[in-house]
């Protein structure tokens, strides 16, 4: 029984590691300028915790195998180094590992969150609501008109609550249900929620941020690869949570300009 158990643990540990090593399922391709340190951190952590995982499972299995059938009269042996040795080993090995991970991770995090958006970043607003994302481009005047939550009407497709009659800045604002951005151009994404908590997650873009009702948050990023991606909501927001998504198109500058021009005619 014990030997079978030991073998089972080892088999499970190895089988578990195979899809990871073979990248059968893996994080999506990175299309952001800031994603490299995140991916590096991910592989680093995967390697270190993978080794820890395999080593401790195998150790567990070996000890079960070895010490479950003691010969009669065999005395209890003590682990070389004793408890203090293990404590020191834990502090040295795991301690240095986690401090290193923490330090490099903090650096990766800081490079994303502690840098202001560039002066040329393209402003773009996203509003989350049950259960769809909507986007707003400031239009030719470069200014977003003010929001009037009391004017919001989904039936009229006045998603943001704009008063185009009275607010001159709102007149040329372009509201869309799909997000499109030009490639290799920094985007300054201004986020707010209309109702409850939501989240903005584009795996490829390495961008993930909750919408907090009552707070205006912002993110900035640059996409490096033309293509069509998906934005999903990762914060439980109600019955339609599973269907809260939008497409993100990364266009060349020319394609983006013509897309935006076309969207302007729909307003």
């Amino acid at each position: 029984m014990a030997k079978l158990f030991a073998v089972t643990i080892i088999v499970i540990a190895i089988l578990s590691a195979i899809p990871i090593v073979r990248h059968t399922w893996w994080t999506s391709q990175d299309i952001s300028t800031h994603g490299a340190p995140i991916d590096e951190q991910m592989s680093e952590t995967m390697a270190e915790s993978g080794i820890l995982f395999l080593a401790s499972q195998i150790l567990l299995a070996v000890f079960i195998w070895k010490f479950s059938r003691p010969r009669p009269g065999e005395k209890i042996k003590s682990f070389p180094g004793g408890a203090m040795g293990l404590v020191i080993a834990a502090f040295l090995l795991v301690g240095t590992e986690v401090l290193a991970l923490g330090a490099f991770g903090a650096k990766a995090w800081a490079s994303i969150y502690f840098t202001p958006p560039g002066a040329n970043a393209m402003p773009l607003q996203v509003q989350a609501g049950q259960f769809a994302f909507y986007f707003r481009y400031p239009g030719p005047d470069g200014k977003f008109g003010p929001l009037h939550p009391d004017l919001i009407s989904e039936a009229n497709q006045n998603i943001f609550g704009l008063d185009t009659e009275h607010d001159p800045d709102s007149k040329d604002d372009i509201v869309t249900a799909e997000m499109a951005i030009p490639v290799n151009r920094e985007i300054h994404l201004l986020m707010h929620s209309k109702d409850v908590g939501h989240a903005f997650f584009v795996p490829e873009l390495r961008v993930h941020q909750d919408f907090v009702p009552g707070l205006d948050l912002s993110m900035h990023f640059t996409a490096t690869k033309v293509g069509r991606y998906e934005i999903v909501c990762t914060q439980l927001c109600g019955l339609g949570h599973y269907n809260m998504r939008a497409y993100l198109s990364v266009f060349s500058q020319e394609d983006f300009d013509s897309w935006l021009k076309k969207q302007a005619t729909f307003q």
Binding site: I38, S49, A108, W109
Partner: peptide, 16 residues
């Protein structure tokens, strides 16, 4: 797997 979730940078990929 806690090693991953302890790091905010990796949490960008794994949160939720």
């Amino acid at each position: 797997s806690g090693f991953f979730l302890a790091q905010p940078s990796i949490d960008i990929l794994l949160h939720g």
